[in-house]
Amino acid sequence: MSDHHSHEDIEAVKRKYIIIFLALIVGTVFTVGAYFLEIHSVALTVALALFIASIKAFLVAGYFMHLMDEKKMIYGILASTVFFFIGLMGLTIWAMHDMPPTTQFH
């Protein structure tokens, strides 16, 4: 976040924090509500839960961690992290069916 703020700027930021806080609570209620709805499609349940979690993560990272208004250096660090994280998950998916020939399934 930029380093110098007036009193009014901070008051506006505080209001924003409260709105984000309420949005996070609503997101949590939706996530749990979807669970109790007992959606029969597993894929839809997973997609919905992770979609809501991603929105909540965006709100926390973007506003509480000030990533909406940060220096390029931090974006650079995060870009390299995302690159390696995707690589890690990609390797996991790639290795999913990579079993030794003698593996027995039951």
């Binding site: 996530t31 349940t45 997973v46 839960a49 992770l50 809501i52 979690a53 926390v60 509480f64």
Partner: peptide
């Protein structure tokens, strides 16, 4: 210290649905 705390919150945002709900 707050940035670290928010990261801890971020991790839980994913842990909760993954472990409790899915």
């Amino acid at each position: 210290s707050g940035l670290f705390w928010h990261f801890v919150d971020l991790v839980w945002i994913f842990l909760f649905p993954v472990l409790y709900l899915l």
